Computed example of a mutant assay.
Amino acid sequence: MLTLTARQENQAELERQKYLEDLETQKAEAKEEYNKLLNSIEWDKMMRCAVTVHLDPETANGNLEVSQDLAAVCDAGGWCNVTENGKRFERFPFVLAQESFTEGRHYWEVTVDGCHTWDLGVARASAARSGRVVLCPEDGYWAIGHSWDRYEVKDRENVDLGNLESISRVGIFLNLDNNLVSFHDARRKLQVHSVSVAFQEPVYPFFCPWRSREPIRITPVPVAE
């Protein structure tokens, strides 16, 4: 049978353990709040790098339909009567933006809600546009994609991004000052992938809706106050 002193010591030890557990919980909550604040600050900085980009019909594959405002693209349902030129994607349903970047920081968003298959990212100016184009860094493309229920990093062997919640708006941040391209769930303000790359030539925003009749659309980014 425990003595009174032993019971008191046992109670004190339980209280000490409870205090330490509460302290760890408070530390974890404080860290979470700090990370949220840090993420909010970084997100605000990224928003200040927002740019307006427009689709370039001269690069659009003949199976694509580009909207008149040059903001949306979808499968055209058949081959369109397009003029051949060296800028146009010959075989796959890809299109670039009119704007290219060689320095600085640039952020844009694309609404993909309703489109079950898409690829988005950036392409260097010299990336191949004819024949069999592989979306991979070696061939000049840095992109992520979605195919029905799977999100992946585009490469010669695509890399699964795991169990992400459904993304309705994709944010792409091209940070040429720090040699970084990052991809974000813009609605939830979460980064889903980033890659380090040092570009030696102009870089273009890249878009692909594959065979979807539902368009993907470049979406205006709210201006940070």
Results as ranks from 00 to 15, higher is better:
residue 171 G to L: 00
residue 72 A to W: 05
residue 80 C to V: 05
residue 171 G to A: 04
residue 114 G to K: 11
residue 158 N to V: 03
residue 24 E to Y: 12
residue 8 Q to D: 15
residue 16 R to E: 07
residue 6 A to C: 08
residue 214 E to Y: 04
residue 222 P to Y: 00
residue 208 C to D: 11
residue 49 C to A: 11
residue 99 E to Y: 09
residue 224 A to R: 15
residue 96 L to G: 04
residue 179 N to P: 09
residue 44 D to P: 05
residue 65 E to I: 12
residue 82 V to G: 11
residue 169 R to L: 11
residue 18 K to N: 15
residue 47 M to S: 09
residue 105 R to P: 06
residue 127 A to T: 06
residue 57 P to Q: 01
residue 150 R to D: 13
residue 82 V to F: 10
residue 61 N to I: 07
residue 180 L to Q: 15
residue 121 G to P: 01
residue 97 A to S: 15
residue 218 I to Y: 08
residue 203 V to E: 01
residue 63 N to F: 12
residue 51 V to Q: 02
residue 159 V to Q: 14
residue 217 R to I: 03
residue 163 N to Q: 14
residue 201 E to F: 02
residue 121 G to F: 00
residue 73 V to W: 07
residue 74 C to R: 15
residue 205 P to K: 08
residue 128 A to N: 12
residue 215 P to W: 00
residue 200 Q to M: 12
residue 181 V to N: 00
residue 181 V to R: 04
residue 23 L to G: 00
residue 97 A to L: 00
residue 16 R to G: 09
residue 44 D to R: 14
residue 10 N to E: 14
residue 49 C to V: 04
residue 132 R to I: 01
residue 101 F to I: 01
residue 197 V to A: 13
residue 15 E to I: 04
residue 22 D to N: 14
residue 109 E to W: 07
residue 151 Y to V: 05
residue 85 N to T: 02
residue 172 I to H: 05
residue 125 A to L: 05
residue 205 P to Q: 08
residue 54 H to S: 15
residue 199 F to P: 09
residue 116 H to N: 11
residue 203 V to A: 00
residue 24 E to I: 02
residue 123 A to D: 04
residue 17 Q to N: 07
residue 118 W to K: 03
residue 221 V to W: 03
residue 70 L to F: 14
residue 84 E to F: 10
residue 78 G to Y: 10
residue 92 F to H: 14
residue 38 L to W: 10
residue 138 E to N: 11
